[in-house]
Simulated scan of single mutants.
Amino acid sequence: MDESKAKQPLLGEMLHLRGNSLQKGEPVALPLTQSSMFHLPGSPEGFPNYGRVNNPTWEHLEHVLGHLEGAPCLAFPSGMAAISAALFATVRAGQRILIPSDGYYVTRLLAERFLANLGVTVEQRPTVTFEEGGFDRFDIVFVESPSNPGLDMIDLRAVAQEVRATGGITIADNTTLTPLGQRPLDLGIDMVVASDTKAMGGHSDLLMGHVASRNPDLMAAVEEWRKVSGAIPGPHEAWLLHRGLETLDVRFERMCNSAGVLAARLVEHPAVQEIRYPGLPGDPSHELAKAQTLKFGFLLSITLDSEERAERFINSCPLIRPATSLGGVHSSAERRARWGDDVDPGFVRLSVGCEPVEELWQAIETSLDGLT
């Protein structure tokens, strides 16, 4: 996708965003500012004033996130905090929103259990038929591409254009691909949300999220929501995420490359009944992924013939952590049916980490061979 590839962030420049503004004797590493109060004599205008409003650590983090997204960013204490901010800052009572029925299940819970109780009409469609029926009745259209966990994809450019033509707003969850794998804002999406707990942080030691948009009115509304609701990131978590972003490029490259190698081999394994990975030529998402994404991602799924075998595979492989979440340096896997996702009991979501790919494949193959 040449247009998006031309807009990739300059990653070397990102690593030196702070360094190129330093004065002599200042620390190269980002300082951690752990303070709720600031020295504030006289008029407070133009100065940090209170820890719920300002913090130098997460403000510099937002500068780096904004460089990656190519748009202003606001940081949040989790991915769901970012999703909540994007929705609560934009939707109004009496409006209609559309969300994917097969996307991240907590987004559905937020819409069904809270937004619906505030006079918001919530409708759902599966990703593969998301564009059927059009969008003229909706004020907010929330998309997730690829879907989690099914890895189906939506034509983001087409959806963004149609929703904008009818006066609506689009919000895209780009957690699984990050700004290095897919650039929804470049495709016309109004607002991006992401869980930085996943690949952006990368070390499974923090909860964070962010919202990005090139629409200043939307960002002002999200910033006001954060300030009033108190959904702010902790300085230490912001510091950890900033450190994680400095290795995102090398981690993401390895994870995506390894996922492609594993997917091609898993197709041939007799224990695997079905596999989904957008990088496979026969995958239903492949053609759209080729046109829309910069990388095919680090997530894949395999379906084994029973819940029992799926559990045995996950729990017996020494280089796979049986855990929820994704995007860490450690490969992890889980049966998504245990959370209520509408998938086969033997469906396994595999998040490929940073282990050497041949060593990882040997461990996976041995575990699969042991199921027979």
Rank of each mutant, 00 (worst) to 15 (best):
S306Q: 05
E307H: 15
E308N: 07
E308G: 06
A310P: 05
A310F: 09
E311T: 10
R312G: 02
I314Y: 04
I314T: 01
I314F: 04
N315D: 04
C317P: 05
C317S: 12
C317T: 05
P318I: 00
P318H: 01
I320N: 01
P322M: 05
T324H: 10
T324A: 13
S325P: 05
S325F: 08
G327A: 07
G328E: 11
V329I: 15
H330Y: 12
S331Q: 02
S331W: 01
S331D: 04
S332Y: 04
S332A: 15
A333V: 07
E334R: 14
R335S: 10
R335Q: 15
R336C: 15
A337V: 13
A337S: 15
R338P: 02
W339A: 14
G340D: 02
D341H: 11
D342R: 05
V343N: 03
V343D: 02
V343Y: 06
V343A: 06
G346D: 03
G346V: 02
F347V: 01
V348M: 07
R349L: 15
R349K: 13
L350G: 07
S351A: 14
V352R: 08
C354V: 12
E355S: 09
P356H: 02
E358K: 03
E359T: 10
E359N: 07
L360E: 01
L360W: 00
L360K: 01
L360R: 00
